[in-house]
Design a protein around this nucleic acid. Structure first.
Lengths: 228, 228
DNA sequence: ACAAAAGTGTTGAGAGTACACCCATGC
DNA sequence: GCATGGGTGTACTCTCAACACTTTTGT
C-alpha cells in the first residue's frame, strides 16, 4: 500500500533541523530573555530567539551548547530540552523543524555577541517582548510556563544565582519570576526544610545594615531533581 | 568566523526526522506497550516501538497520528510529545533524529496491524520488555516515567478507559500503572473531590453482586489539564 | 443465606499560610 | 541613635493517610 522509499539516500526530501534557545536570566530586578536581531531574510530586522542548524555530526544538546556559547558566551548553565516544533509552514523558506531548549544563566557570566546571522543581541524583559520572527512567540510563552513550573517544583532557581547567595537574593529571584511577593518567614522555612543549601559561614557585609549569611547550593547544577 | 552555509539548498547534509510512538494501554490487568518486530535491517528481527519518517509536508503531530492509525488502527487517543532524541550514532544507517510521542489508548479500540517495515505487532507488558532495537529502551523508560507523572498530576487516566466506567475500574487503572494498591475510600474521595467525573445514572449490573454506578468524564480528552 | 464486589466517615499527622517583632550593622 | 535590611516562632487550616463495616445484588 505504501510505496517503499529509501529514506537514507539523499534523493529523499528531508527537513532541516535547528535548535532554538530560550535563554533566561535575571538582570536589573527583572526576568530577561536574550533575543537577536536577524541580519538576513526572512524576517530581516525582526527580533528572534537565538538558534542555528544542527550539524550532521553533533548531538542536539551539543548544538544547543554551541549556540549558547556563540550567543551568550556561557557554558555553565542549566539546560533542558523544551519541545520540538515542526509545523511545515513555520519557516517560509522551507521545512525546518526546531528543537527548542531553555537555559537558565546567571547574568554575571553572560557576554552577549551577535552571531553570524544577527546584527545585535540584547536582553528583553520576558514580560514585555517585541514582535518576534517565526513562531518564536509561541516558543517563548511555552518556555515561560515551563520555567514557572520548574521553579515551583524543582530547584532550578539556583542556576540563576551566583555560587554564593543570600536568602533574600534567592527570594528575589522567585519573586521576579512569579511576579509576586512571598512571605519571608515561610519562604526561608521552606527553603531550609528542603535541605538543598548550606550555610557557608561567610557573610555579606559592607552595607549599612545587618550583614546577611551567604549560602551555597549543596549539589552541582543538574544533579538535584530529574523531574521531566 | 563561521563559514556561511546555505542550509536550504539540498547540497547541505540534513538529518532524517522520524516519529516514534510509545503506545500504552491496559489489557489483561497489566500495562501494555505496542511493539513491532522489524522486517528490515538494521536490527532485523528485533522488537522496536512503532515509528516512521516524517513526510515533508506533514506536521510532527500529523505524522504521529498517522503512525498510530497505521499500527494500532486508533484515532481517539491521548497523544503527547515526549522528547526528541538526536544522538548522531543512534541509528547505524546514518543521522536520524527521533521525535518521540506517547499515546494512551483504550484497548478495546485497538486493531493491531503490522506495517510495511514490520512483520508483527504485539502487546508487551511495560514491566517486562524484550530487548529492543536502537535506543528504544531509553525512550520507553522515559515514557513510563512521564506516564506515572501524568497519572499522578493530571487526569490522563481517563484515556485508558471506555467512555463509561466504574470507580473500581478507574482505581484498577491507577493500581496497574503504579504497581501498587490504593485505599478505596481515599481514592474515591479524591476522585470525586476533583469534580472531573459525573454519575451517568446508569448501573453496571448482571453480575452476581451489587451493581456499580457508571461514571463518565465531564470534558473531552485533552481539554482538562494543560500541564506540560 | 451466602458470596462478592460496591459503597461509605472519622480521626490524627503533617504541610502550608498568615502574621509582627527584635537584631546587627554603617553612618 | 537611627535607618536599613536580616533574621526568627506560633497558631490555624486544610490536605492526606490510615482504618472496618454495611449494602445490594445473583445464585
Amino acid at each position: 500500500m505504501v510505496v517503499y522509499e529509501n529514506p537514507l539516500d539523499d534523493s529523499f526530501k528531508k527537513p532541516l533541523v535547528a535548535v532554538d534557545m530560550v535563554i533566561f536570566t535575571i538582570k536589573d530586578d527583572a526576568l530577561k530573555v536574550i533575543l537577536v536581531k536577524r541580519a538576513i531574510p526572512p524576517f530581516k530586522g525582526k527580533w528572534a530567539i537565538p538558534g542555528g542548524f544542527v550539524k550532521i555530526n553533533e548531538s542536539l544538546e551539543e548544538a544547543a551548547k554551541r549556540e549558547l556559547m556563540e550567543e551568550a558566551g556561557v557554558d555553565e548553565v542549566y539546560l533542558e530540552q523544551l519541545y520540538t516544533f515542526g509545523e511545515p509552514k513555520r519557516d517560509p523558506r522551507g521545512r525546518v523543524i526546531s528543537v527548542s531548549y531553555f537555559a537558565l544563566v546567571n547574568s554575571s557570566g553572560i557576554n552577549l555577541k551577535a552571531s553570524t546571522d544577527a546584527t545585535e543581541a540584547e536582553f528583553f524583559s520576558a514580560y514585555n517582548l517585541p514582535e518576534l520572527a517565526f513562531d518564536h512567540e509561541k516558543i517563548l510563552k511555552y518556555a515561560l510556563q515551563r520555567l514557572k513550573w520548574k521553579m515551583e517544583y524543582t530547584t532550578v532557581a539556583f542556576s540563576l544565582l551566583p555560587e554564593k547567595f543570600t536568602l533574600t537574593e534567592l527570594q528575589n529571584a522567585y519573586e521576579i519570576v512569579f511576579h509576586k511577593k512571598f512571605d519571608e518567614r515561610n519562604f526561608r522555612k521552606k527553603i531550609l526544610a528542603l535541605g538543598m543549601i548550606k550555610d557557608t559561614g561567610e557573610l555579606r557585609g559592607g552595607l549599612s545594615h545587618r550583614p546577611a549569611k551567604l549560602y551555597a547550593f549543596k549539589k552541582k547544577i543538574g544533579e538535584i531533581f530529574e523531574i521531566l
